[in-house]
Amino acid sequence: MSARAEVAVSVGAHGDSLWSKALRKFRRDRVGMWSLAVVLAYAVVALGVVLGLWAGDWADVSGPKWAPVSGEYWFGTNIIGQDIFARSLYSTRTAFEVGLVVALGATALGAVLGSTAGFFSGSWIDEVIIWLMGVLDSVPFILLVAAISYTLQGSPWAMHIAMIATFWIGTARLIRGEVIKLKSLEYVEAAHAIGVSRFMIIFRHILPNTFHILLVQATLSFVAAIKSEVILSFLGLGVKDGMSWGLMISESTFEVLAGFFNNFIAASVLMFGLVMAFNMFSDALQDALDPRTVK
């Protein structure tokens, strides 16, 4: 007993927890660090828009129609003479807003329902949650967005809510499995024995130990949200007020046929950059948090 405690202390002294090890691994991952830098650069752009530092004039009709790239209009102007550069920056803000809201919402919901199902696995609570996952999985996504949009009478949050309502399922399935594994461990049994309430056991003792899964799932939801936003906005079910990459691409489909590509290229390249960087960041994070990989 005392020997084991000693080992635990010495491991702790070297700071060799999952997190410190992951941080060390991540720092050594050059691709991971670069992709994180790119994501942070986008985040700064988005934050600047929120603070009103730039792109406040995204809706102004200031220039001539389809102006080429110039010192004044860095990416040119669109069909009615709006500055594409300002619109691209503003869309970055929209992408972060959608991504963060959906990632946080879906991950939190997945964590709560997944851990509850896992803790009560085999009971009716578990059955109900599994049933709910199956049902939501079987409703076509775009129809769900449209239906929620009806119900909320065209609220701009319909898209976010629909994404949260479907994206939590993947997270919940993983967390459920992990919690089933964790709940039979000794420390949970010990918590039971000293009379910790079930609520506290789930959310204070078990759930924090699945945080590495939640972190990776949140990054995946972020990417999925940005990609869905583009398609939903194009179909007229997404962003209602404001500007987004999806709306820019939607605008550009007419322009592309007339041989004017600025809008399309600006939105596509910016979106591709963010999604690619986020995907690689997510990969690096997964590698760093995976105890099986040694680096």
Partner: peptide
């Protein structure tokens, strides 16, 4: 594969359309 994953389906559609179907 990472490129295919990161590109939006919509962008891929418009891109291939420009490539094969437009006068450009």
């Amino acid at each position: 594969a990472a490129v295919g994953m990161s590109i939006s389906f919509l962008i891929a559609i418009i891109g291939f359309q420009i490539l094969f179907s437009s006068s450009d």
